[in-house]
Nucleic acid binder design. Structure first.
Lengths: 214, 214
DNA sequence: TGTACATCAGTGAACGCGCGTTCACTGATGTAC
DNA sequence: TGTACATCAGTGAACGCGCGTTCACTGATGTAC
């Protein structure tokens, strides 16, 4: 039990919030979940955080800056999820690769608010360089995984790593955005999106001559 | 030259607009282009159409109804583009199929506002059944094209049509949404998205044993 | 250990603004006879 | 062909509301000595 800076529910907080940045992020995610990236306002986020409407200006220049920070953190979490699923290619590269694909879909399903902020909020990368960098780091996991798979091929039949990584990213992203997302824009299909992705990857691998060598 | 109901620029229009529905759609598209689906308001669309703020209520229940109508028309145009590219499988199914893929990307590039309204406006399909139907009609073009390709395979090696169509849709959509879109959210890659898609489709076809039989 | 001071991170009142929506109205159009 | 009338598709004024933003302020915290 803590005496100072009690942050539990129902606790008295003093004049200073103590963790307003995090509270704003959380509020933004809740609002995006409920109403999409369009339907969240600076003022409402402040209210949800239990703070005056002027307080967020101590932390963010404006609404878009907060939205971009949400997206950046989303990319960081995304990278973490992907890295954990890939797990350095263990126990073997094919198993790990399919886990990576499932992790992509699981993120879209589990975190539709982050997903929308990252991919559908219309944030221009040019205005938020951090965002592009964070996105690139997440993509790097996927690219490294492709590189590891490609290394199992004889050198004369190796496709370009970047091409393969972009193919897998596009495929995963398409399935995630259309069929796996955890919000009202999901389209219903008569099979689990995870199975759809796995089947597509297997066909694609066959096309590359990349069989799980069992 | 027409004397009545002159709709050309600079023409005098009377008390009645004559074509407000279309004008509102056009205004909405312009605003979505500039600021994304989030940044368009009923009032601003009315202003752009040169009409009082109350006028749109004669045609649409609210902002979302207008947005949904934009999306529906987008699906109709999309269907038309895809059907034209596929062209009934002429001159041959492989050529026509790649034209179909390019048409998907071309739509995302040429009509980012429609694309955003259709796929990223967060409209729930349950609230707008017309939208789902229009989307299904567009998808049907792609499914029929896949069916035609599958028929070129010996019957014992034919994949399920729906699965293949969903794979191709996901792949095309992923590339369109990430790399081919015509707005600020496009990610830069060192190759034309059309080439990326064509390469992916060829690998996928190889995986199915579907070679362009030349 | 205490005190003075700088800095930080909030408050709350105020403002202008544009949006969504309603309302009684009115000009334009179409149609019955 | 003309007239009366119903309907349609606009107007414009009005309203309440919440947002974004600024401002002088103040309570809390950290630190130098």
């Amino acid at each position: 039990m803590s005496w100072h800076r009690d942050t539990g529910p129902g606790s008295r907080r003093g004049y200073h919030h103590g963790n307003l940045r995090e509270a704003l992020i959380k509020a933004a995610l809740d609002l995006i979940s409920q109403k999409g990236p369009a339907g969240f306002t600076f003022a409402e986020a402040a209210r949800a955080a239990g703070v005056s409407a002027a307080a967020p200006y101590r932390h963010y220049r404006d609404r878009d800056a907060l939205l971009a920070d949400v997206a950046r953190r989303g990319y960081d979490l995304f990278e973490e999820s992907l890295a954990k699923a890939w797990n350095g290619g263990k126990p073997d590269v094919h198993t790990a690769f399919h886990a990576l694909g499932r992790a992509y879909l699981a993120f879209a399903k589990r975190e539709p608010a982050y997903f929308a902020a990252m991919f559908e909020a219309g944030l221009a990368f040019d205005a938020f360089p951090d965002l592009r960098d964070a996105g690139d780091r997440a993509f790097a996991i996927l690219r490294d995984a492709c590189a590891a798979l490609i290394e199992t091929l004889p050198s004369e039949r190796r496709p370009p790593v970047l091409m393969m990584a972009l193919h897998i990213w596009s495929l995963s992203h398409g399935i995630a955005a259309l069929f796996a997302r955890g919000d009202g824009a999901r389209r219903a299909i008569p099979m689990p999106p995870e199975d759809l992705l796995e089947a597509a990857v297997l066909v694609y691998f066959d096309g590359l001559g990349l069989r799980a060598g069992k």
